[in-house]
């Protein structure tokens, strides 16, 4: 066990955990930020996507010890009231079915558009194909990403 001081959603947070603990579980069970989801634990589904700095990464494969003082952003820190353009596009296009994967999808999309505000369909597909939606909402996810891109 060791104490880590993390910068999560703009706040300093201390946790006392095994250094190998993935950020996924630090967020969910130590910081009570449950918008980051467990789906596979092997970086295959994207449900646990967060931002480390500006990059979208799979928090299930990110040990807490590797985070350092880098800024961590989770879905809870994306906006004050769910009014980030990507979140708004998700609501506008009524994307979700069960909804479990959607926070991870949104985090991936936000990072994509930050890096590439004019992402083409092919680029959207390439970036979003690491996130599984078992309900099959891909057509709407793509529409929402496109819409958010044009509004940014």
């Amino acid at each position: 066990m060791a104490i880590f001081t993390l910068n999560v959603n703009g706040k300093k947070q201390q946790v006392n955990v095994d250094p190998a603990t993935p950020m996924l579980w630090v967020l969910r069970e130590h910081l009570n930020l449950v918008g980051t989801k467990y789906g596979c634990g092997v970086a295959q589904c994207g449900a646990c996507t967060i931002h480390l700095g500006d990059s979208a990464i799979r928090s299930c494969q990110l040990p807490v010890s590797a985070v350092g003082d880098k800024a961590v952003t989770t879905i809870e820190g994306l906006s004050e009231n769910g009014d980030h353009p990507v979140q708004k596009a998700w609501i506008e296009h009524d994307v979700a079915q069960c909804g479990y994967c959607q926070t991870g999808q949104i985090m991936t999309a936000v990072a994509l558009l930050k890096a590439n505000p004019n992402a083409t369909d092919t680029q959207i597909e390439a970036a979003m194909s690491g996130n599984i939606c078992r309900c099959g909402t891909y057509v709407r996810i793509k529409e929402a990403v496109r819409a958010a891109a044009s509004h940014q």
């Binding site: 449950v34 918008g35 809870e76 994306l78 009524d94 909804g99 479990y100 959607q102 926070t103």
Partner: peptide
């Protein structure tokens, strides 16, 4: 008449809606 998902905002903001989130 099409009505938006009433849970839409809770979903996109990561609210604890699921069994896995219960504590």
């Amino acid at each position: 008449h099409s009505q938006k998902n009433v849970a839409g905002k809770n979903i996109v903001t990561g609210k604890p809606l699921f069994g896995m989130d219960y504590t």
